[in-house]
Design a protein around this nucleic acid. Sequence first.
DNA 1: GAAATACTGAAGTAACTACTTAACTATTTT
DNA 2: AAAATAGTTAAGTAGTTACTTCAGTATTTC
Lengths: 111, 111
Amino acid sequence: MLHDPAQLDLMFQALADPARRQMVERLSRGPASVSQLAEPLAMSLSAVVQHLNVLEASGLVSTEKLGRVRTCRIEPHALKAAEHWINERRLAWERRLDRLGDFLADTKDET
Amino acid sequence: MLHDPAQLDLMFQALADPARRQMVERLSRGPASVSQLAEPLAMSLSAVVQHLNVLEASGLVSTEKLGRVRTCRIEPHALKAAEHWINERRLAWERRLDRLGDFLADTKDET
DNA sequence: GAAATACTGAAGTAACTACTTAACTATTTT
DNA sequence: AAAATAGTTAAGTAGTTACTTCAGTATTTC
């Protein structure tokens, strides 16, 4: 799993945009062409291609061109890296609270 | 868990910045004052306060002012919401691949 | 081979972001 | 009460982002 901060930056930045999240959501249900990705979005095809480039640069999506159709798919490894970063921080916090809880319980015992 | 897309937007946008992620990382090890958060960052205190406001607006961090010190802490619920969004998409994709694998295996059995 | 399809790239623009400095307020400490 | 501390707020600015339109290039289809 890539913890390169620059890569994390690109991933979270990619996920920050609602249109791009919608694209990821669509792709989570299966591969799609650029036009299929564009269809539910209220913007030009050109704009969608630009969003797609952001997603691809972030590593969250990979694409392959066959003939005139570019097929896009999710990269679950990259998604997992973002997920992992958040999870680690949340767990660190929760472990801390647990230790604090134990400490308080122990202190109470000693009275 | 809040799935409000506007809230997700704010959260991912908040996490997109490396300085803000560093602040979250620091807070995952325990509460901190604004100056403590600022200390490792190469920017003015003012800039840190602005980042902090973004984090607070996103719901990822909450703060409480006592006297002249503002103490900041992580909101694990919000972190979990972001985590959950990513996880759902990745699982949707992986379930899809599993079904596809089963289908291919079944098809092979039928020869 | 002409027309339709599926994208791609460049240029322009309006809005937003991440800062800065400087002036300020509120709270402690001495 | 003066000085130091901790944070806040406003205004300005350079750089970035999310689009747009328009003109292009391959690839199919008819």
